[in-house]
Amino acid sequence: MVGIGYRKDFSEEFLNSDILSPAFIEVAPENWLGVGGYWKKQFHQALERYPLFTHGLSLSIGSPDELDFQFLANVKAFLKETGAVLYSEHLSYAKCDNAHLYDLLPIPFTEDAVKHVAERIRKVQDFLEQKIAIEIVSYYTPVAPELTEINFINTILQEADCELLLDVNNVYVNAFNHRYHAKQFIEQLDLNRVRYIHMAGHEQVSDSLIIDTHGEAIIDPVYDLFEHTLELLGRDVPVLLERDFNIPEMEALQAEISRLSAIKENVLKRTAHAIA
């Protein structure tokens, strides 16, 4: 199944035509919590047609600040009310010194941060009474690193006993920005924990830097990395197409969804044959 990030920007066209046919939709609970009126009606129409996956923005799992349990209680109620299939968040921080930043900042790759973040993920999972999937974020600079990125991520996944949201584009972006091999990086991940995959486009702003914009179409090397990832996984995992800015025509989004579905279908067939 391949889903789409449900955006207010294309909500009306999406709901009033059958051009775009995702298997599910994904939203950030923050953007819909406590919302009524026009948007609530639109959202409920979407919920009547599609299963919901959720992907949080503001939990700030890597923050030095205390976890916001009031916010988490609101998220929990939202997940229950909407029947959300899963809740995922970012391996980053978006709040510090009691101030929200509304963007995803990289956590220092340090041993104390591993323990701190893993403990917070466990607390969140206990509170929500479900496992959550944590996304590897794209980053443009390391911050006081002591560990390698792969060690940092794998240890957190293990200590938190959480699931992994593997954003294939983010791995591509990070491999480019930090000069490592994307396929090898994915091979070193604990792939048994992959619960969900994100795919998106990006923008290369210089010879040495890519910014993860979600504002462009997915490029061929990221499709290749996606295929490689699916081959390694050898099982069906839900995939999401993220497009947050510079939204194209619905036909263009559907073409990306179709391409992702086709790659997935082919890999799963090949894997099934190999097993048989």
Binding site: P64, C96, L101, P108, K115, H116, T141, P142, A144
Partner: peptide
Amino acid sequence: MQLLKQTRQYQSDLAGYCRTGILQHIPGI
């Protein structure tokens, strides 16, 4: 294990830079 004061400080410095444009020294950045 508590987050070390230094790690906390680096995170605060990065967040502070995003808010103010004033960049403190952060190793490895």
